[in-house]
C-alpha cells in the first residue's frame, strides 16, 4: 500500500521534473552571475581557478558558514556518540603487505592533499578537496594499523587555529577595507603560486580545518564500541 502510494507520488513528481527539464535545453549558454564571475575573476581576484575564487572570495562569507556547519556536525557527532568511546578495538591488524604499502602511501597521500589545497587557486582542487584527501590518508592508516591514534588535542588545535585564521583574515579585510574578507594583499600575476591575495591563505586554512574535522569524524565513528 505504502509502496503503491509512494510510486504514484514519485511518478507524478518525476513526470513534472522531466517536463521542466525538457524546457531547459542541455548544454546551452546561460547568462547570469556566472558570466560576470568568468569575465572578471582574474582581474579582480587574481585567481586562475574561478570556482575557487567564487568559493573563497565572492562567496567567502558563505564558506565561513559552511565550515561552521561542518564543525557543528563534527562536534554534534562527538556529542551523539559521547560515552560510547572505548579504546578496545576488535579490528585485526592488516597483513604486512598492506601495512608496508600504506606506510609508504600515507605521506604521499598527505602530500597530495597539501598540494591540492596549496594550489587551490591555480588548479582544480582546494581546501575542501585537499582536506578530504588528507582524511582518506588518515583513514588508510586507521584501517591498516591497530594502534594508530590521532591526538584529539592536536586536532582541536589545528581546527581552532584554522578557523581563527579564516575569521582573522576576514576581519583584517574589514578593518583595512570596507567589507569582511576584502582582499588586502597584492594580487600578483595570475597563475603564479604566490598570487590572488588572501585566497590561498584562506583555502589553506580551510584545508587544515576540513582535514582535521573529517579525521575527527572518522575517529569518533571508529572508536565507538558496539
Amino acid at each position: 500500500m505504502r509502496k503503491a502510494i509512494a510510486i504514484l507520488l514519485l511518478a507524478i513528481v518525476g513526470y513534472y521534473f522531466i517536463n521542466v527539464f525538457i524546457h531547459m535545453p542541455f548544454g546551452e549558454k546561460r547568462e547570469g552571475v556566472g558570466k560576470y564571475y568568468l569575465e572578471n575573476t582574474v582581474k579582480e581576484t587574481g585567481a586562475a581557478n574561478v570556482v575557487t575564487a567564487i568559493v573563497v572570495s565572492y562567496r567567502g562569507f558563505d564558506t565561513l558558514g559552511e565550515v561552521t556547519v561542518l564543525f557543528l556536525a563534527a562536534t554534534g557527532l562527538g556529542a551523539i556518540l559521547f560515552g560510547k568511546r572505548g579504546e578496545k578495538r576488535r579490528l585485526q591488524g592488516a597483513s604486512v603487505i598492506v601495512k608496508t604499502t600504506s606506510m609508504m602511501l600515507y605521506p604521499m597521500v598527505v602530500l597530495l592533499g597539501a598540494y591540492v589545497f596549496v594550489h587551490g587557486h591555480l588548479t582544480p582542487g582546494g581546501g575542501f578537496q585537499g582536506g578530504a584527501i588528507i582524511a582518506t590518508g588518515v583513514l588508510l592508516m586507521f584501517m591498516s594499523y591497530r594502534h594508530f591514534n590521532v591526538s584529539h588535542n592536536a586536532l582541536t588545535w589545528i581546527e581552532s587555529l584554522a578557523g581563527l585564521t579564516f575569521a582573522t583574515v576576514g576581519l583584517i579585510g574589514l578593518a583595512l577595507g570596507t567589507t569582511f574578507l576584502q582582499n588586502f594583499l597584492p594580487l600578483g600575476t595570475p597563475n603564479d603560486l604566490v598570487s590572488a591575495g588572501i585566497i590561498p591563505i584562506i583555502y589553506i586554512a580551510v584545508g587544515f580545518k576540513v582535514g582535521a574535522e573529517l579525521t575527527g569524524v572518522l575517529d569518533n565513528m571508529l572508536k565507538t564500541i558496539r
Binding site: 505504502r2 502510494i5 509512494a6 507520488l9 514519485l10 507524478i12 513528481v13 513534472y16 517536463n19 521542466v20 524546457h23 531547459m24
Partner: peptide, 23 residues
C-alpha cells in the same frame, strides 16, 4: 516525508506550472 512529497504534488497539480514553465 510522504506528506512533504504529497504537498509538492498538490502544489504541482494545482499551480499548473513550475519554475515559471507552464505544463
Amino acid at each position: 516525508a510522504m506528506y512533504v512529497i504529497l504537498m509538492v504534488v498538490i502544489l504541482i497539480l494545482f499551480s499548473g506550472s513550475i519554475f515559471g514553465i507552464h505544463l
